[in-house]
Write a protein that binds this DNA or RNA. Structure first.
Length: 566
RNA sequence: CGGGGCGUAGCUCAGCUUGGCUAGAGCGCUACCUUGGGGUGGUAGAGGCCGCAGGUUCAAGUCCUGUCGCUCCGACCA
């Protein structure tokens, strides 16, 4: 491919709308253009990258026995009404009508239609297991599209669904997919980490997320430094490690302490001259299962996912000042468990071990001292409720955990029979008994992976693609195209590399060398072959984008040297 | 959905407060000259429904109302 004939509209200035690095670079380097909020055109460079990513995904899905299909993107409302998600999905579902006024939606995911498919055509245990996947556009009318390709309203996702006879079969399918994902992200050249994840509203009991590690990632994960242990989890899911032993201290008598205007843990600590680990924080939440009070130590945060799971709530949010006053009779900042009624208590296990702690007194400007869980307030539900943070002990081996940020690019779930039972997806086993199909689902955000690769691999100059997914692995840059020696040698280099099966772009534009070098760095070709001063000697210069290392090579050995470097 | 900000040339932005000739700059683009190892220097050009609609006014890019779009922060998610 020749740059003079190829559409690579790089910008000198960055469009103002872009905030995150991948969005900015993708726009600036001429990979994408916005069509509308959350909708992007992929220009040739991005399209090439996408094709390479999809190819690797396909190969790994197929290797595990996956069979690719193509499903309708536009789907009848009827299907979604039957699963109940026409209502549940809410405004995120893009809805439209055909000319007859019938309701349709643009698929945000494909569980319904694939279940429908399998229900119609799979009846016997002889047809199982089955791994079906598709890689297509999905649509979600996000509340707030942002970050360019990291969160669009239209995006490409690979979804594979596994259908098995029983749990043992599901376990096999799950492991196959887990391995496939490791291979996919490894081949893409990304630094990633699989972590334990909450299965969320999709349900099921086991789930892992695949995180591309990047400082800009929205997700926070913790992992154990112990090589033998290997524990890693999304903080939403991460379990708390070893419990703190009970204080060797005799419970003292409950005592009211005036704390005028001291609403925050910090204020109360300073005023009463105690550490935050002596305080019990009582947070009121409103949930679809009624109000509840979450109790954690003063220096801890509530993990809302754990709280939701503990009370069986799907939606929860912190109560506002009016609600707090109605329930506690006190303003914000003085809520405590002693004498509190009309709410469900959920107590972090760490709190249950505390002795002589300090809590709000449910009256303005006062706290209690020497509060003792169990004695001064009930413990109907003691559970792991706190948010795990860095340096907390690993729940498996006790070593201090490390934290990292990541971009979620894939998630695998064991769905079990949750879906199939609701939808009536069954098969006849070898004894003629009707049994629910055991399902799993496995997604990869393909367009998001493209953006995540940029988030993880860039510098001030531009992108730095892993060779496996670079739009072109090599760019050949003649310094002066009007110099016949240089342009001829550049053509030879281009032909040699093309002939050797390397994806190569010849930057034959009559631009100044500085312009071409800047563009090459911006677009992020892993390797640049510069044809300049040394051309008369038949030598070209090779420069690695990631570290700037350079070396000379003769035209005859070029293809071999390039292949060794990539 | 709540709270801010912004819509003027392909891109980045002035101009609006205090209404007044033909609406500006830099970059990019076109042609020519120059230069030729990190966005060269010059000459001449092209390019605008000032987001849209209504209103006020002798006069609106500028003031008022409405509307649409974009964006950032917050609550939710691949």
């Amino acid at each position: 491919m020749r740059a003079s004939e190829y559409l690579i509209p790089t910008l000198r200035e960055t469009p103002a709308e872009a905030e995150v690095v991948s969005h900015r670079l993708l726009l600036k380097a001429g990979y994408i253009r916005k069509a509308a909020s959350g909708f992007y055109t992929l220009l040739p460079l991005a399209h090439r990258v996408l094709q390479k990513i999809m190819r690797i995904i396909r190969e790994e899905m197929d290797r595990q026995g996956g069979q690719e299909i193509l499903l309708p993107i536009m789907q009848p409302a009827e299907l979604w009404l039957r699963s109940g998600r026409w209502q549940v999905y809410g405004p995120e579902l893009f809805r439209l009508k055909d000319r007859h006024g019938r309701d349709f939606c643009l698929g945000p995911t494909h569980e319904e239609i694939i279940t429908e498919l399998v229900m119609g055509d799979v009846r016997s245990h002889k047809q199982l297991p089955l791994l079906l996947y598709q890689m297509q556009n999905k649509y979600r009318d996000e509340r707030r599209p942002r970050f360019g390709l990291l969160r669009g309203r239209e995006f490409i996702m690979k979804d594979l669904y596994s259908f098995d006879r029983d749990e043992a079969g599901l376990e096999v399918s799950y492991r196959k997919m887990f391995e496939a994902y490791q291979r996919v992200f490894g081949r893409l050249g990304l630094e990633f980490r699989p972590v334990e994840a909450d299965s969320g509203p999709i349900g099921g009991n086991v789930s892992h997320e695949f995180m591309v590690l990047a400082g800009s990632g929205e997700a926070l994960v913790v992992h154990c430094p112990g090589a033998a242990c290997g524990y890693a989890a999304n903080v939403e899911k991460a379990e708390s490690g070893a419990k703190r032993p009970r204080h060797e201290e005799e419970p003292a008598a409950l005592e009211l302490a005036p704390t005028p205007g001291k609403r925050t843990v910090d204020d109360v600590c300073a005023f009463l001259e105690v550490g935050p680990e002596r305080i019990v924080k009582t947070l009121l939440y409103e949930t679809d299962k009624g109000p509840c009070a979450a109790l954690v130590r003063g220096d801890r945060e509530v993990n809302e996912v754990k709280l939701g799971n503990a009370v069986g709530a799907v939606h929860l949010e912190m109560a506002g000042p009016e609600t707090i006053r109605r329930i506690t009779g006190a303003p914000v900042g003085f809520t405590g468990p002693v004498g509190l009624e009309g709410v469900r208590f959920v107590v972090d296990d760490e709190v249950s071990f505390m002795v002589n702690c300090i809590t709000g007194a449910n009256q303005g400007d006062a706290h209690y001292r020497n509060v003792n869980p169990g004695r001064d307030f009930p413990l109907p539900l003691v559970t792991d409720l706190r948010l795990v943070r860095e340096k907390d002990p690993c729940p498996r081996c006790g070593l201090p955990l490390l934290a990292a940020r990541g971009i979620e690019v894939g998630q695998v779930f064991k769905l079990g029979t949750k879906y199939s039972e609701v939808m009536g997806l069954t098969y006849l086993d070898e004894h003629g008994a009707e049994r629910p199909v055991v399902m799993g689902c496995y997604g990869i955000g393909v367009t998001r992976t493209l953006a995540a690769a940029v988030e993880q691999n860039h510098d001030e100059q531009g992108m730095i693609w892993p060779a496996a997914i670079a739009p072109f692995a090599v760019v050949v840059v003649p310094v002066n195209v009007r110099d016949e020696v240089q342009s001829e040698l550049a053509e030879k280099a281009y032909a040699a590399l093309s002939g050797a099966g390397v994806d190569v772009l010849l930057d034959d534009r009559p631009e100044r060398p500085g312009v071409k070098f800047k563009d090459a760095d911006l677009v992020g070709y892993p390797l640049r072959v510069t044809v300049g001063k040394t051309a008369a000697d038949g030598l070209v210069e090779l420069r690695l984008r990631k570290n700037g290392d350079t070396r000379l090579a003769g035209i005859g050995e070029l293809a071999a040297v390039v292949r060794a470097l990539l």
